[in-house]
C-alpha cells in the first residue's frame, strides 16, 4: 500500500503539477492533489469539461504528468470506459502485458456528473468497467459563472436560481447522487470532503482497489461561486460535514459505513452562514425556509444512520 505519511506524500512527485489556473483557495485543486497522491500505479485520466479541465489543459500548457483526455461535457464516464475497454482488448491480445496494470480515472464536476453526464455515468457503472469516477462537487456550474445544478443546495442563490421579490434562491432540494450510485450495486461508492484528507485518500485508495466501477463524490469548496473567504474553504467544507449536510460514508457491497461521525452535530445554519450564496436565508422572513432545510438534512442523516445500523 502506498504510504499516507505526510512526509512521504509531500516528497513524492505529483502527477498533477503546479502552474494550473484554478482560483486561489479552490477545493477542487486540493482534492485532485490528494486523490492523485493516494495510489502509485500508472493512471489514465478522462476529464469532463469544467473548471479542472480548462485550468489544467489549456494549450500549450498542461498540468498533467499522466495521459489525460478531454472530450466534452457529458461524457467523461463513457470516454474512460472506452479507454478501459481498449486496455482490456490489448491485454487479451498480448499487446500490453497483463502484469502492466493501469488505473482508469474520470473527473467531472457536479454539472458534468449529476446533470448532463448522468446517463453516461449510470451506463458505465452498470456495464461494470474497472474505473473510478470522482465527482468534484462544488454545487453548481461554477466554471461558467455559477448557475444552478441538481447538486445546488436548496435556498442557494445562483445566477439561474436568483433571489428576488418572489423567489429566495433554489427551490428544490439537491439530488442525492452518492446513494443513487450505490443503488447501482457497484463494488464501491463513497462520499468525501477535502477537509478530512486522510479519509478522502483512504477512499480513493479503496476505490482503485476494488474490482469494478467505483464512485466517489467529493464536496469541493468554491470561493468564487459560494462567495466565501478563499482562505477558509476547508473550514466551510468541514462545517458541511459537521452539520451532517455532507455526511462522510462509504457503501461497499451494499454495506453502508459512516466513516466520520461528528462528535457534536452542528445546526445547518452554521454551515450556511458566512457564505454569500446563502446570505438571504438568514433574514427573519426566511426562517421557515431555513427550518425546512434543517428538517431535510436531518431526515437524510437519520436515514443514513439507520442504513448503517447506527444509533440515532
Amino acid at each position: 500500500m502506498v504510504s499516507f505519511k505526510l512526509k512521504d506524500i509531500a516528497t513524492r512527485e505529483e502527477p498533477f503539477a503546479q502552474g494550473h489556473k484554478m482560483c486561489p483557495g479552490c477545493g477542487v485543486a486540493i482534492t485532485v492533489r490528494q486523490i492523485m497522491a493516494s495510489f502509485e500505479e500508472p493512471v489514465v485520466i478522462a476529464n469532463a469539461t469544467g473548471c479542472l479541465e480548462i485550468c489544467s489543459g489549456t494549450f500549450p500548457f498542461s498540468s498533467w504528468r499522466v495521459p489525460w483526455i478531454h472530450s466534452a461535457f457529458p461524457n467523461a464516464a463513457s470516454t474512460i470506459a472506452g479507454l478501459e475497454s481498449m486496455y482490456r482488448a490489448k491485454v487479451r491480445r498480448g499487446e500490453i502485458p497483463k502484469e502492466r496494470k493501469i488505473k482508469f480515472l474520470a473527473f467531472g464536476g457536479d454539472g458534468g456528473t449529476y446533470d448532463i453526464g448522468f446517463q453516461a455515468l449510470s451506463g458505465a457503472m452498470e456495464r461494470g468497467h474497472n474505473i473510478v469516477y470522482v465527482c468534484l462537487d462544488n454545487e453548481g456550474y461554477m466554471n461558467t459563472g455559477g448557475q444552478r445544478s441538481s447538486a445546488t443546495p436548496s435556498g442557494a442563490r445562483t445566477t439561474t436560481s436568483e433571489v428576488g421579490k418572489v423567489l429566495q434562491g433554489k427551490q428544490q432540494f439537491r439530488k442525492d447522487l452518492t446513494r443513487i450510485m450505490a443503488a447501482h450495486n457497484i463494488p464501491y461508492a463513497a462520499q468525501a470532503a477535502p477537509s478530512k484528507w486522510l479519509d478522502l485518500m483512504k477512499k480513493a485508495y479503496r476505490a482503485f482497489e476494488v474490482n469494478g466501477p467505483a464512485f466517489i463524490n467529493v464536496l469541493c469548496h468554491c470561493p468564487t461561486g459560494w462567495h466565501t473567504d478563499p482562505t477558509r474553504g476547508l473550514e466551510f467544507v468541514q462545517r458541511a460535514v459537521d452539520s451532517c449536510f455532507w455526511p462522510l460514508y462509504e457503501v461497499e457491497s451494499g454495506v453502508v459505513r459512516i466513516t466520520y461521525k461528528p462528535r457534536k452535530k452542528i445546526p445547518v445554519v452554521e454551515w450556511l452562514k458566512d457564505q454569500g450564496r446563502f446570505k438571504h436565508l438568514l433574514r427573519p422572513e426566511n426562517e421557515e425556509l431555513l427550518e425546512s432545510i434543517q428538517v431535510e438534512v436531518d431526515r437524510i442523516w437519520n436515514q443514513l444512520l439507520k442504513d448503517a445500523g447506527e444509533e440515532m
Binding site: V44, A46, I69, S71, A72, P74, N75, A77, S78, T79, I80, A81, G82, L83, E84, S85, M86, Y87, R88, A89, K90, R92, E95, Q119, A120, S122, G123, A124, E126, R127
Partner: peptide, 24 residues
Amino acid sequence: TEFVATESEHSAMSACVGAAAGGG
C-alpha cells in the same frame, strides 16, 4: 473484440473516442 453495448449513441461515440485515443 471488447464489445461495449452502451446506453446511448452519445456514449457509444464517446467510448470510441476513448478507445481510439487508447491506440487501437
